[in-house]
Simulated scan of single mutants.
Amino acid sequence: MSRKDRLHDCLNTALSPMHLEVTDESHMHNVPEGAESHFKVLAVSEAFVGEKPIDRHRRVNALVRDELAAGLHAVAIHAWTPQEWFDKGGGAAPASPECLGGGKQAG
């Protein structure tokens, strides 16, 4: 099973989201092909209602702790309540910026 699938299954089970996107963005970074090291998560869940954004991020980071220990390098987290998602138009997570680390620095 791929890391993307494991992340999706873990978050889906724990958060019961009404919408979940797990996107492998490793290709945007200076890592070997197939590294599965950088991901973006958009999770829309009632579980986030009443939580501050930092607490939502902490919750998601805790859920993916095993993957972080096993080589996952970075997770861009967009953890929204259903109302926030609807207020944003019910679309996709914001685009991630270009990586400027390693061999991909702007010249």
Rank of each mutant, 00 (worst) to 15 (best):
A70M: 14
A93Y: 03
L11F: 05
E36D: 12
E36V: 04
K88C: 02
H78A: 02
A70Y: 05
A95M: 15
D87P: 12
G91T: 03
E67L: 10
E46A: 12
C99A: 13
P53Q: 07
G102C: 10
A62G: 13
E33Q: 08
Q83W: 03
R6N: 07
A62R: 10
D24I: 00
A43D: 15
D5F: 13
P94M: 02
M1P: 03
V60T: 02
F48M: 04
H19K: 13
Q83M: 05
L42H: 02
A93F: 03
P82Y: 01
L7A: 06
A79M: 08
T13V: 15
A43I: 00
L42F: 00
K4V: 01
M18E: 12
E67S: 13
A35W: 01
L11K: 08
A74V: 11
R65P: 05
N12R: 01
K40C: 13
S16G: 12
A92S: 11
R6S: 08
T13G: 07
R3L: 11
P32V: 08
A92F: 07
D24P: 04
R56T: 11
G91Y: 01
V31D: 00
N61H: 14
T81A: 04
A14P: 12
A79R: 03
G102T: 09
D24K: 05
L15E: 00
P32W: 01
L42N: 02
G103P: 15
F86N: 15
G34R: 02
R56Q: 03
V22F: 04
C10L: 05
S2E: 10
R6W: 02
E98W: 14
H27S: 07
R58I: 08
H29R: 07
R58W: 04
H27W: 06
M1R: 15
V31R: 10
D24R: 07
N30R: 13
R56P: 11
P82K: 00
A76N: 04
D24H: 09
H73P: 04
G107W: 05
A79Q: 03
P53C: 09
G107D: 09
G91W: 05
E36Y: 11
Q105E: 13
T13H: 11
R59Y: 07
P94V: 02
D24G: 02
K4Q: 12
A106Q: 06
G90W: 07
F39A: 02
A93R: 00
R59H: 08
I54N: 04
K104S: 14
L68M: 09
G89M: 11
G50A: 09
E98K: 06
R58V: 08
A69D: 12
E67P: 05
E46D: 14
R56K: 02
L11E: 12
K40L: 15
A76K: 03
E67C: 06
G90C: 13
S26L: 12
R65V: 14
G102D: 14
A74P: 01
T23M: 04
P82C: 10
D55F: 11
D5T: 02
N61D: 15
A74L: 15
S16T: 14
H29Q: 07
K88L: 04
A95K: 10
N30I: 10
S45G: 15
P97W: 13
A93K: 01
H29C: 04
V22P: 00
A70E: 05
Q83A: 13
G50P: 10
